[in-house]
Computed example of a mutant assay.
Amino acid sequence: MGETVLVTGGTGYVGGWAIVALLERGYDVRTTVRTLEKADAVRAAVGASERLSFAAADLTKDAGWDEAMQGVDYVLHVASPLGDENSTDAEALIVPARDGALRVLKAATRAGVRRVVMTSAANAASPASYKEDSVTDETLWTVDDPSLPAYRRSKTLAEKAAWDFIDSYDGPTELTTVLPGAVFGPILTANNVGTTQIIQRMLTGKMPGTPKIGLEVVDVRDLVDLHIRAMVSAEAGGQRFLGTGEFVWMRDIAEALKSRLGEQAKNVPTRQLPNFVVRLASISDPALKAITISLGRRNRHSTAKAEHILGWKPRPAAETVVECAKSLIAQGAVRR
């Protein structure tokens, strides 16, 4: 094919699957890692290929990004700086996410890259009131509010900074953003379970019950497919695309695992925890505190734009979570 794609964060969950999909489609792939010592771990996860190369670059530092962009046609910016998404220190998450996105974009424009496809989050296109039962699309921007979880604010502000930069830029490089929901699916290695930790915790029995939290489940393979479609489609430049999947409650996920995995899912809890119990527990558990804002919320996002323009269609949520669980078990990532 003769085209080179830079994937930021090759050690990440989405980054690893992006590398796999691009290699399968015949692209040359370069991926960034914070240090080149991590290259062997990436090769072990995605498979060795002479069309895969590495560049040392850290989203929190300027060094290495110009070199990483040399000869690159497209960029999939799927990486995020490391941080605790349950942190109450907003600036500790917002600043590196925003500055990292700008580092990638500035280096890409200096190199004349054709298009950067950046991973944002569906939470960057959600209504101000989390009590609303509504369906929103890409035209909505989340209003930044200090009361929102720091991680959600960081994704919104990083994407907004990226668009503000492109609006002030006069050159050939285009920007497209993809806004995923809850990303599950098979893992490539037990050393990196990514966002599948929720399924992992359910399988190990570490959850006493399921909170009334709704998730728009998207398979990591479908999410990567959406990124690649957005990368090559002539109509996708300058666009936002929601990449959410089917809306399901966590209890629905638990029941799907129970019904399809049998004995392997014996520790999965199906009892739904009352909202007041979750709120009480959140007083001493930061991880729970971050999700209380979503208890009982049924806000959903429309993927009509991605389906119409890009021909994208996500698979059913139950299929994704079951394959995710089977993968976690097969890779030895479930220890009771």
Rank of each mutant, 00 (worst) to 15 (best):
M1T: 13
M1I: 13
T4P: 05
Y13N: 07
Y13A: 09
G15L: 13
G16K: 07
I19N: 08
A21N: 08
Y27L: 15
D28I: 14
D28S: 15
T31N: 12
V33E: 11
T35R: 14
E37C: 05
K38C: 10
A39C: 08
D40T: 08
V42R: 10
G47P: 05
R51P: 06
A56F: 12
A56T: 10
A57F: 04
A57L: 03
D58M: 04
K61A: 13
K61Q: 13
G64Q: 01
E67F: 00
E67A: 07
A68H: 04
Q70L: 00
V72Y: 02
H77N: 09
L82P: 00
G83I: 09
E85A: 07
N86K: 12
N86H: 15
T88C: 01
A90E: 12
I94C: 10
I94P: 11
R98P: 06
G100D: 13
R110K: 15
A111N: 02
V113F: 14
R114Q: 12
V117I: 08
M118R: 05
A121E: 01
A122W: 01
S126N: 10
A128K: 14
Y130E: 08
D133H: 14
L148N: 08
R152P: 00
K155C: 03
T156K: 04
A158V: 01
E159H: 02
A161Y: 03
W163F: 05
D164N: 07
D164T: 01
S168G: 14
G171A: 12
G171I: 10
T173A: 05
T173V: 07
T173P: 08
T177M: 03
T177S: 14
V178Y: 04
L179F: 05
A182L: 06
A190Y: 02
T195V: 01
T195L: 03
I198E: 04
I198K: 02
R201M: 13
L203I: 11
P208S: 12
I213G: 12
E216Y: 02
V217D: 09
V218Y: 06
V224S: 07
V224W: 04
V224G: 05
V224Y: 08
L226Y: 09
L226H: 07
H227D: 03
M231I: 03
V232F: 09
S233Q: 10
A234E: 15
A234S: 15
A234Y: 14
A236Y: 15
G238V: 14
Q239C: 15
F241A: 10
G245S: 04
W249S: 15
M250K: 07
M250A: 05
A254I: 09
A256Y: 05
A256W: 11
S259Q: 07
R260Q: 15
L261M: 14
L261P: 07
G262V: 13
E263R: 13
Q264P: 01
A265C: 03
A265E: 03
V278W: 10
V278Y: 09
R279F: 13
A281Y: 13
A287Q: 15
A287T: 11
L288G: 10
T292Q: 09
I293C: 02
I293Y: 03
S294H: 06
G296R: 00
R297S: 12
H301C: 02
A304V: 04
A304Y: 03
E307V: 07
E307C: 05
I309D: 09
L310H: 09
L310C: 05
G311W: 08
P314K: 13
E319W: 13
E319P: 10
V322C: 11
E323Q: 09
A325E: 10
K326M: 12
K326D: 11
L328M: 06
A330R: 14
Q331V: 10
G332E: 04
R336V: 01
